[in-house]
């Protein structure tokens, strides 16, 4: 940080700097290298072991069986379901988050903006499980959402929505629509925050210029604001996409009994005790997220986080 001893020779100053850097880094580096990177490597190695079918014990021999098993059709359906859900949640977050972000950035200032910013970020940090629990209350058959539909005399509409094949179910809390709503609720603030940062960077005179040149509100939105907001949207989508893809608790609590990616891992390591297969399967979300990151990197997502 500071270099007070300017009377040292340049060479010795360089060494002193390295010494300082090393002494700062040694503890955190050791922690992460041993505990975190070490664990990830252990996980990868476990993926090559296999479970003895009769004894239920892990056989410590390297093999590719687990990785080949991933490509069975049953797991492919799970992967597709999780992927489509992640895409749907991301798209809905963009649609829902954009007006909010634009409103906060353009039409508020001072303490009002601070309060709105806090209101957006507060749910992010507050208890995930409590919020999930609340949704269980909201979506329950006798819960508040059903009550609102009844109060508005729209029971038939609710029944119609619930009778849609695949995504419907006996009640909202046992349907994929419910799962989707909860995912959206949980992750959409993650979209709003980077979006606000990106929208804030749009110079005001761009908008005025567009208006002066006769651009309608829609044209300004389409040709000025949205293109400039893309890096922010891409950055936010990293969160909404990968959080949806990896979550295994929400679909366990709200939804029909069809599996999502995380649940396969969880059940394999828990009830089945098949840690080797679970370890191999963790590669699926990692690879999908890796591809996704590569894709959004090209949209400028990493400059906008």
């Amino acid at each position: 940080m500071a270099q007070p001893h300017s009377n040292l020779s340049p060479m010795r100053r360089v060494w002193k700097n390295y010494g300082q850097l090393a002494s700062l880094l040694i503890l955190p580096l050791a922690w992460f290298a041993i505990i975190y990177v070490g664990s990830l490597i252990a996980l990868l190695i476990y993926g090559f072991y296999r479970l003895d079918e009769f004894s239920g014990l892990v056989v410590y021999e390297l093999g590719l069986d687990n990785f080949l098993a991933i490509f069975s059709p049953a797991y492919f359906a799970v992967v597709m379901r999780s992927f489509l859900m992640a895409v749907a949640v991301t798209a809905a977050s963009v649609i829902m988050g954009f007006p909010l972000a634009w409103y906060i950035v353009r039409y508020t200032q001072g303490w009002r903006r601070l309060v709105l910013f806090l209101l957006v970020s507060l749910p992010l940090w507050s208890s995930y499980l409590v919020r999930l629990y609340i949704w269980k209350l909201l979506l329950a058959k006798e819960g508040i959402v059903a009550w609102i539909f009844t109060a508005l005399h729209l029971e038939n509409l609710l029944d119609a929505i619930l009778s849609i094949p695949v995504i419907g179910g006996s009640s909202l809390s046992f349907s994929l629509i419910g799962t989707f709503l909860v995912f959206l609720y949980m992750w959409f603030p993650f979209m709003v925050i980077p979006m606000m940062a990106a929208l804030q960077r749009i110079p005001h005179n761009f908008l005025e210029a567009s208006e002066d040149l006769g651009g309608s509100t829609w044209q300004t939105l389409r040709y000025i604001i949205i293109p400039l907001a893309v890096p922010g949207i891409a950055a936010g989508s990293i969160f909404t996409f990968s959080l949806t893809l990896g979550d295994y608790i929400i679909p366990q609590v709200i939804g029909n009994s069809s599996y999502f990616l995380g649940q396969v891992i969880y059940v394999q390591q828990g009830t089945s005790g098949n840690i080797p297969f679970a370890a191999a399967f963790t590669l699926v979300p990692i690879v999908i997220i890796g591809i996704y990151l590569w894709f959004v990197r090209r949209l400028g997502a990493f400059d906008a986080i």
Partner: peptide
């Protein structure tokens, strides 16, 4: 990374 990856690692 999804929490489940960190957890199981």
């Amino acid at each position: 990374l999804p929490g489940i990856v960190t957890g199981i690692a």
